[in-house]
């Protein structure tokens, strides 16, 4: 991970986007401003001294998005094709939620524009209401989603969800000692998931694979070994020397039966402790 706005000497520079392909870019951001319930009520009924608060804040947000490059030093000036700013009055939390979406066909992302729109809309809300409430607090300004461009799509919360779903099931590819997610059978027909662990993984160069149950001459570990040798002679190693086997994480022998979606692991004698 590198910071694209810093060059090799760590100096700030503007990224040259001339050679980047154009794509449809969209970003949305949100934030909120917390205020006293009385202020929110005045805002809702249009009773604030400066007039229509939300309409003014919306225009301010849109204008700000268009002028982001004047505020944020290394941002490009972008011909935005769409900017929308929306408000939701949340009486339960006594706050106004502000969201903004920016879009263009171009070479750089528009998340700074969306974030700027939200920030300035919030500041404008403050300015419009400050005569009656100086305790208002702006917060939680963040990017919700962005799409298009080389860095790929982003949706806030996805990273956390990814981490949670990546609960380790079995050792696999990658550094020894690390774990990868166990795969599911991706085939329509019944199949077994085969894993090779530790030294066996490294010497065979195979971490995980699936084998169709139909390819097994007999539906047991012995049959699986035969099917694997059929696929690649190097799997003869599984029948040589001391290679252990577990079916669904319970120690097994050649005669142990195998059924659909079983997890079969082959590994060398254990050396822990």
């Amino acid at each position: 991970m590198t910071l694209t706005h810093l060059n090799q000497r760590g100096e700030a520079h503007m990224v040259d986007v001339a050679d980047k392909p154009e794509s449809r870019r969209e970003a949305s951001a949100s934030g909120h401003i917390v205020m006293r319930p009385e202020t929110l009520a005045l805002l809702a009924e249009g009773g604030l001294p400066k007039g229509d608060v939300l309409a003014t804040a919306r225009i301010a947000g849109i204008q700000a998005a268009k002028r982001t490059h004047e505020l944020i030093p290394l941002c490009h000036a972008l011909p935005l094709s769409k900017v929308s700013v929306d408000f939701h009055l949340d009486e339960a939390s006594s706050r106004v939620e502000v969201s903004a979406t920016c879009r263009l066909n171009g070479r750089t992302g528009v998340e700074m524009e969306a974030l700027t729109a939200v920030s300035v809309a919030c500041l404008t809300l403050y300015d419009m209401c400050k005569a009656v409430d100086k305790d208002m607090e702006i917060g939680a300004i963040h990017l919700d989603a962005k799409s298009g461009g080389r860095s790929g799509d982003y949706r806030r919360g996805d990273e956390a969800a990814k981490v949670a779903s990546a609960a380790p099931i079995v050792t696999g590819e990658g550094e020894a000692g690390e774990v990868s997610v166990g795969m599911r059978c991706d085939q329509e027909s019944p199949c077994v998931r085969v894993k090779c662990l530790a030294e066996l993984r490294e010497s065979l160069g195979v971490s995980e694979l699936t084998v169709s149950l139909d390819d097994l001459p007999t539906a047991d570990v012995g049959g699986l070994k035969a099917a694997l040798v059929e696929r690649d002679p190097r799997f003869a190693r599984l029948s040589e020397g001391r290679v252990l086997c577990a079916v669904n994480q319970v120690m097994a022998v050649d005669a142990t039966p195998i059924t659909d979606d079983d997890e079969v692991a082959f590994f060398p004698p254990v050396t822990g402790g």
Binding site: E199, R242, T271
Partner: peptide, 22 residues
């Protein structure tokens, strides 16, 4: 534990890396 729990040691030494034998 040393003979039944599925742990495997790989040692990194001055003369290279190797998996520890049982």
């Amino acid at each position: 534990l040393k003979t039944r729990a599925p742990f495997w040691k790989k040692e990194h030494s001055a003369s290279g890396d190797y998996w520890v034998a049982e």
